[in-house]
Amino acid sequence: MDYSWIQISVAAVFLSVVITLVLSRGYGWLSPTFWRNAAVVSSMIMLFILMWLTFDTTEKIRPGAGRVPTWTVINHQIGLKWDGEKRRQVPVVGEQTGFFGKVYSPDEAFALINKGKMTLQGRNCMECHQILGNGAYYAPDLTRAWLDPWWEERIMPALGVASREEAMKTWLQHPDKYPQGRRRMPNLHFSDEEAVALVAFLKWMSAIDTNGFPPRFGVAQ
């Protein structure tokens, strides 16, 4: 994008005011006509800018375009690193490690994450958890769930499994049996396929560049 937010804001306000004034020549600022013009002009200008920015945003949030990862990111190691210039964490994609002992092709990875997204919606996770910070506040934010240190520190030893993906899959299928606090997640009866797909979705989501939200994830301990 060639314009900064300040330029866009100033242009939007300036154009709204000037066009309204030009269209309302001869009417006092207390007349209904003046404000009717203001209403129509400001709505149209803001709507136009929103449409324009939507095209720009849509391009920039395509998987693989930089901010949202490609589907095959699930085959790789993922982490967060502190970016001293931006003063926030950014996701980093590391070497290829496979996922559940397998390397997924782009099509397979897409199908799996898609299944995970549908399961996420079908089981209504968003009415307990936040996804990218939006949703309910009964359960933890899932944006960086894949990167949570507790999988290694507590869940893997408790379940006796050797990898993070195994730990997540098994825990998600039996959250009622391994509660970590007073609030328990109910058993939502995921099939094996659904559970693997959810883990893939969560792993993929953890590599989205969210401008640093949630702040300082996992830094304190």
Binding site: W5, S9, T20, P32, S42, M46, I61, L132
Partner: peptide
Amino acid sequence: FLEVALVFGTGILGLGHHYFWIGTPEYWIG
């Protein structure tokens, strides 16, 4: 009319306050 001018004039792009942290570009922050 005044209310419409102000509600739509601020609220349409005010939408950006939900685009800070969902993966959308940085210009939405400002």
